[in-house]
């Protein structure tokens, strides 16, 4: 497993740059497409880590399904740019926010520099995974045995989200009365 530093920095830099774009751009469609790029960059990092299945799923699910829905919703709502303009915050506020962000960054850089990372060798090495039938098989076997609880809970979470979405949408259609 040898990660080429060049590609790692390329993808990580892309991810950071595009995430900044997501929050800085005033146009929602531009933001959404920046987010697509962020997800692509993540997929690249996963692929570098030899997690090919996750990389593929990232592209299919996030960039494919979820982001397309996002863009559709933005276009359907016809959200124009001014409605997203929240006005400028106070000068002092911006200075203090920027200052605290820098301090936090400093703390993180310091912490990562000071810490020594011994690589934790798990039992899941590349060769073993290959021998056991590849990424997809190992992940699916683990998901339905060892990680069955989080897996099932996620489906309950999605169910709750659907009910919530219905509750929000329903009243909008009928307007107060059901």
């Amino acid at each position: 497993m040898d990660i080429s530093p060049f590609f790692f920095y390329l993808f990580a830099g892309l991810a950071i740059a595009c995430s900044t774009m997501v929050i800085l751009k005033k146009n929602p469609v531009t933001s959404a497409f920046s987010l697509v790029l962020v997800f692509f960059a993540f997929a690249g990092i996963y692929a570098l880590l030899d997690a090919h299945l996750i990389a593929a799923l990232q592209v299919f699910v996030y960039t494919g399904a979820i982001m397309v829905l996002f863009v559709f919703v933005i276009m359907l709502l016809n959200a124009d740019v001014p409605s997203f303009d929240l006005g400028r915050s106070h000068f002092l506020m911006r200075v203090s926010a920027g200052f605290s962000a820098l301090v936090l960054l400093g703390i993180f850089v310091w912490a990562f520099k000071e810490s020594s990372f011994h690589s934790i060798g798990g039992e899941f090495t590349l060769e073993k995974i290959e021998a056991a039938g590849g990424n997809t098989q190992v992940i699916s076997e683990l998901m339905f045995s060892e990680y069955i609880l989080p897996f099932e809970l996620t489906s309950i979470l999605l169910l709750a989200a659907i009910v919530g979405a219905v509750a929000i949408a329903k009243r909008k259609l009928v307007g107060g009365r059901v």
Binding site: Y147, L149, P150, L153, T154, I156, L157, A160, A161, V163, G164, A167, I168, R171, K172, G175, G176
Partner: peptide, 23 residues
Amino acid sequence: IVLFIALELMSLAVYVLVGFRRA
């Protein structure tokens, strides 16, 4: 992992409940 999903399940339902008076 379970902690996080449980937290989200709890909060997600409550986000909707908080905004229940849509008008």
